[in-house]
């Protein structure tokens, strides 16, 4: 799987395979979906079972669940304001789902479902639809004034309006590609350096073993960096969702 012949196979790790053989095959449930289900289970367990004791002085798990809650709550309240409380569960679910997807993917043998553009685009499209529906529900047709900032010269309308519309429509694309590209890049690099370790280590005897230390060290550093990226991308996804919600609620 790692190295077939002389070439580096960095992309087969992204292939979808049926989960649990024929059972997964029958309902097209892939290992990617299994990881989503695992993320769902872990998030639910952390938030519900972790705070089940309702301790005044929290234990470790409860403190983790509470800090997750307060972290996302701070983002939503900071960006959207107090009206944002209605959308908090949505932003929280997005943040946790992306965060756990990114983090789970860093475990050995695990699959990173956020490395699939179909998944990240579906999430971004969901955000786009929710934001647009919220904006239309609050402002009605007045929402379309969003595409022409107040006070701009009327003569520039033919220029500004298409730009604003394109920028609005490109939101889900930038949102999804950012996450997708970050996760793919990280995992490709990990795989490439991991393959180097095996190739160099098995090639030239003792010298090869010594030489293999370098890509190995690189991979160690990369894993640390990827943990940062995993958190950062989840944060970026959540904060951009909050900013879009702010625009939807307040129109500029």
């Amino acid at each position: 799987m790692a190295a077939e012949g002389k070439a580096i196979d960095a992309l087969s790790q992204f292939e979808l395979v049926p989960f649990m053989g024929a059972l997964g095959e029958s309902v097209r449930f892939s290992q990617s979906n299994a990881h989503m289900l695992l993320a769902f289970g872990l998030i639910a367990a952390l938030m519900i079972w972790g705070t089940a004791k309702r301790a005044i002085i929290p234990g470790r798990l409860q403190a983790l669940a509470e800090s997750g809650y307060e972290f996302v709550h701070g983002i939503v309240e900071g960006q959207v304001g107090t009206e944002g409380k209605r959308y908090f569960p949505f932003v929280f679910s997005i943040f946790m789902f992306v965060l756990f997807g990114n983090m789970l993917g860093l475990l050995p043998y695990a699959f990173t479902f956020t490395s699939h553009i179909a998944v990240t685009f579906a999430l971004a499209a969901l955000v786009f639809v929710v934001v647009t529906v919220v904006a239309l529900a609050i402002h009605g047709t007045h929402f379309f004034s969003y595409f022409f900032p107040e006070g701009a010269p009327k003569a520039l309308a033919p220029l500004i309006i298409p730009i604003e519309i394109i920028s609005y429509l490109s939101r889900p694309i930038s949102l999804s590609v950012r996450l997708f590209a970050n996760m793919v890049a990280g995992h490709v690099m990990l795989k490439v350096f991991g393959t180097f370790v095996v190739m160099i280590g098995s090639a030239a005897g003792v010298l090869g073993l010594i030489g293999a230390v370098l890509p190995m060290a690189m991979n160690v550093a990369l894993v640390g960096f990827e943990i940062l990226v995993a958190f950062l991308q989840a944060y970026v996804f959540a904060i951009l969702t909050s900013i879009y919600l702010h625009d939807a609620v307040h129109l500029h």
Binding site: L16, R28, F29, S30, S32, N33, M36, L37, F40, I43, A44, M47, I48, T51, A52, R54, A55, P58, Q62, A65, E66, Y69, F88, P89, F90, F92, S93, M96, F97, F113, H116, A118, V119, A122, L123, L126
Partner: peptide, 30 residues
């Protein structure tokens, strides 16, 4: 690829429901 997205929407929907209905009110209560 498409099936993956369909399953994701189902799982994310379940996650949103569980968070909004049970988990977050509980944490807020605490």
């Amino acid at each position: 690829t498409i099936a993956q997205v369909v399953w994701m929407l189902i799982i994310f929907g379940a996650l949103y429901y569980v968070m909004a209905r049970y988990a977050l009110p509980q944490v807020e209560g605490v």
